[in-house]
């Protein structure tokens, strides 16, 4: 056997070894539709919500906040009903996160009025003295950049332009982000 004498044969064998687990745990479930769900009941993102989501990504909110509630009693008591495949089925990318420096946000849209988020995003410390969240005052001063909105909606296959196209007029980045946060937990039709 020349495996450890021929680097090309070695690389091919290594690649095959690596691809076995790759295919079985990741790509076969994807292509076989094992992780697929009906998107019939999912409310697509509005243009404003999508722009808000992109600001959430830009500012790296997912470094401190998860968006997946575990099916554990202490978890649903704190955050609301546990996350299911539908909740993130149309999300590209997913924003489940891996660390909760702050609380989970999967259901945050059902918890506070929009005005609360405006005040909190501007200065978390004015509402909770010992909060360690960075303040985001500049979001309220910046006009939302809508140059790519139509293209984004098209790439993601969300309906546009709909009646929400003019919702974007004169909006700030803060408006978009709050609109996104207010959506969280209400993705699936029929939920509050």
């Amino acid at each position: 056997m020349n495996v450890d004498k021929n680097p090309v044969i070695f690389i091919i064998l290594a690649a095959i070894t690596i691809l076995v687990g790759t295919l079985i745990t990741t790509f076969i479930p994807l292509f076989a539709g094992i992780t697929a769900v009906s998107t019939e009941n999912i409310r697509p993102y509005t243009a404003l919500e999508l722009e808000g989501r992109d600001i959430y990504i830009r500012e790296g909110c997912n470094n401190c906040h998860t968006q997946t509630v575990r099916p554990l009693p202490f978890e649903t008591a704190r955050y609301g009903s546990y996350s299911e495949l539908e909740d993130s089925a149309i999300d590209r990318p997913h924003l489940w996160g891996s660390k909760r420096t702050g609380p989970d946000l999967a259901r945050v849209g059902t918890k506070y009025p929009a005005q609360w988020h405006y005040m909190h995003m501007k200065s978390p410390q004015s509402m909770y003295k010992r909060s360690n969240m960075p303040p985001y005052p500049w979001l309220g001063d910046r006009k939302l950049d809508t140059r790519y909105t139509a293209k984004k909606m098209k790439v993601l296959d969300y309906p546009f332009p709909g009646k929400d196209a003019k919702d974007l007029d004169g909006k700030t980045e803060m408006d978009a982000l709050v609109s996104y946060l207010m959506r969280l937990g209400k993705e699936v039709k029929g939920t509050p």
Partner: peptide
């Protein structure tokens, strides 16, 4: 935007 969505994106 990622070509994968939701749980598939998380899994990948």
């Amino acid at each position: 935007y990622s070509v994968y969505a939701g749980a598939n994106d998380a899994n990948v």
